[in-house]
């Protein structure tokens, strides 16, 4: 069962990659533009820190590290789950979603596997570069265990992005297109690229327990930042990822049910 889906995913990917290579120019431009975007963000942080030494007690490299985790986690979503954006206007409205319902495989899987987004690779590169730049300056020694935890944290971060987008994309089953909502919520993740301690308590709770973007960058990063005071919170990251995914998938199934009973 699982191995069947792994194999299918591989085959879908292969086809998507072929299409990508067919449009080589698009691929390069997409990757470059995303990298530029990311650079702009980092440049901004750099300028701020040229004038001050610490922001609310956080050093430049610590902020850079948080930024890097956000970018890498987000790239997982961007590369593999980008199709979530298109649920309303490319699948449900034009009637293309029906096609997924008459295939003997999980419709969510089919929907996700239908697309691979090359632009996300730019974000992945930048994220890795930023993380490696910041790593040596955090005051901890990096062993195998730390690396392992880092990878787990980043994957968890990616899946939190996925769960949140899936949840709000699912609203498309009830409304014309939930894209504006998905977009608005997604933009909240920008807040999470900075230490949550710089925000008002209300915002902090919101980004921790309601729309848990805090766990996509700040909390997992804090695990590796000496004396951050959030090490224990950080350990919740994988749990939050799993719970968010379960809730989002449950909601998706509700949406699917609504769709099959209204037919639009």
């Amino acid at each position: 069962m699982l191995s069947r889906y792994v194999k299918l995913y591989y085959l879908f990917c292969k086809q998507n990659l072929k299409v990508m290579l067919e449009y080589r120019m698009d691929f390069l431009l997409g990757v470059l533009s995303v990298m530029l975007q990311q650079f702009a963000g980092i440049f901004f942080v750099k300028i701020v820190f040229d004038h001050i030494h610490a922001l609310n007690g956080w050093t430049f490299y610590e902020i850079l590290f948080i930024y890097g985790i956000a970018a890498t986690g987000r790239s997982i979503h961007h590369i593999f789950f980008d199709n979530l954006w298109t649920l309303g206007w490319q699948y449900i409205r034009p009637g293309k979603f029906d096609r997924l319902l008459i295939r003997p495989i999980n419709p969510l899987f089919h929907f996700i596997a239908d697309r691979l987004q090359q632009d996300g690779f730019g974000q992945l590169f930048i994220g890795i570069i930023v993380i490696s730049t910041a790593m040596p300056h955090l005051g901890i020694s990096w062993g195998v265990l730390e690396f392992f935890i880092l990878v787990v944290m980043i994957i968890a971060s990616g899946f939190i992005f996925v769960a949140i987008n899936l949840f709000f994309a699912t609203l498309s089953f009830w409304m014309v297109d939930s894209l504006p909502i998905v977009w608005t919520i997604f933009n909240l993740s920008d807040f999470a690229r900075y230490p949550l301690t710089i925000y008002h308590k209300g915002i902090r709770h919101f980004l921790t327990w309601i729309v848990p973007y805090g766990f996509t960058a700040f909390y997992p990063a804090a695990y590796f930042i000496k004396g951050s005071g959030f090490e224990r919170m950080a350990l919740l990251t994988p749990v939050v990822a799993i719970v968010s995914c379960i809730i989002a998938y449950w909601f998706w199934n509700r949406g699917l049910k609504a769709f099959t009973s209204t037919g639009s």
């Binding site: 029906d98 319902l101 008459i102 049910k257 099959t260 009973s261 037919g263």
Partner: peptide, 12 residues
């Protein structure tokens, strides 16, 4: 089409 959608399982 509505009938066919119910026969294929697209519609309940």
């Amino acid at each position: 089409s509505t009938t066919i959608k119910m026969l294929t399982g697209i519609l309940t």
